[in-house]
Design a protein around this nucleic acid. Sequence first.
DNA 1: TGCGGTTCTCAGAAAAATCACAGACTCCGG
DNA 2: CCGGAGTCTGTGATTTTTCTGAGAACCGCA
Lengths: 246, 246
Amino acid sequence: MTTTSPQGRTELLRPDGSPVRVLVVDDELSITELLSMALRYEGWQIRSAGDGQAAIRSARDFRPDAVVLDMMLPDMDGLSVLGRLRRELPEVPVLFLTAKDAVEDRIAGLTAGGDDYVTKPFSLEEVVARLRGLIRRSGAADRRSDSVLVVGDLTLDEDSHEVSRAGENIHLTATEFELLRFLMRNPRRVLSKAQILDRVWSYDFGGQANVVELYISYLRRKIDAGREPMIHTRRGAGYLIKPAVS
Amino acid sequence: MTTTSPQGRTELLRPDGSPVRVLVVDDELSITELLSMALRYEGWQIRSAGDGQAAIRSARDFRPDAVVLDMMLPDMDGLSVLGRLRRELPEVPVLFLTAKDAVEDRIAGLTAGGDDYVTKPFSLEEVVARLRGLIRRSGAADRRSDSVLVVGDLTLDEDSHEVSRAGENIHLTATEFELLRFLMRNPRRVLSKAQILDRVWSYDFGGQANVVELYISYLRRKIDAGREPMIHTRRGAGYLIKPAVS
DNA sequence: TGCGGTTCTCAGAAAAATCACAGACTCCGG
DNA sequence: CCGGAGTCTGTGATTTTTCTGAGAACCGCA
């Protein structure tokens, strides 16, 4: 089931109307904090665990709809945590967190079953997007919810990565796409450059806030070109997107 | 009976509408995990067993519509498991997992009865495809479900392995076929190179994402040659297939 | 109107992703 | 044993994307 929040954002809900529950498993406190905050922002219920033992326990009584699992835990390796997790919750989809270089051998194959993974360092938008995909596909949330974001005559398909305005197809690069996705998931809401940087770029990105301005200008050139502008600057506050005729 | 999942994929269902049940028997945890995940993704109900004893027990009360059976188990050899399995479930089709070199004599006879086998290491697409075939032929699921994938004017028959575009027959190698099958089972959806690698290549394939690019280029040469392209690159995201006129 | 801070845009360097091609290796049938 | 088909690796060329730095433009306010 989907519902629309006062902010105009569409949330995933379980069939009974209660919020989706996500369990976050990572031994670095800074990571669980970061993720918990970002995922709560989605309107989801979050619980976190710092090691495999706690994860299994939480799985049992929290009964999450999805799990975020770091593959490098102190007490037991990710695969055995996964095994015991599956015994508790056979159907639950898992999003793996893994180091960039460790991908090949250990993770290969894990994503095949419809699970997914992201490499550290990740961007929060990435994590949220993939989790949404997993939850949507798992059927925990209403299957009718589809993967298309719409704001005014602007359309973004998260599956095919296609974007169009007023029917006209628009090509975006990967970063542009993620930025627009973030804006469109928060229509009519001012997003600060810091927020955008945190969400769209990796959490360890060392660069300047200048990139945000730059990519906003790229987007404008492609989205607003000639038309009524949808992307607006709020001086000293940030940016927002909203339907052109408002 | 067939139904269409949110991904637009056609699922096998039993006559009473409940999902198909598959029992996975293997002593390596990583293999049962891998298979369980992949098969759940197909919308099937999975139970797994780590040895022959557990397999027999599960067969009795889970009553699967198909069994995946590793021929090398610790406590008893595959043949005796098979024998006792047949006593419980005379009709159930079995997919044997076997080492590459052990195939010849022993398996050859077994598959005569309508069963099938794949050699380790296998690719998940292969296992899923063969299981679908077994289940379909066994009559556990509705026979009307057919085995032809269609995207635009492109057609792929999972049974005969025939591929054609705009009526013209196209010869594909085994790997090309599996890659195209995976793409066509997920039309209009971006598939990352990692996803493709996980699904189409063997689970222990250690190679580079380079092969995916290579095989995409092979496919393009055969599928898209001269025509409106159906295979598209989403730089930084992956590849997708969709009807040419869109 | 002039000022200070903010935002926008440009241009180019650096990095990354993709594609193309050639060669090695294996398997299989004659 | 040979030859062909199929697979995969490695290497470069090519294209695209990302990011930095600097100056121009803009805005709100005194």
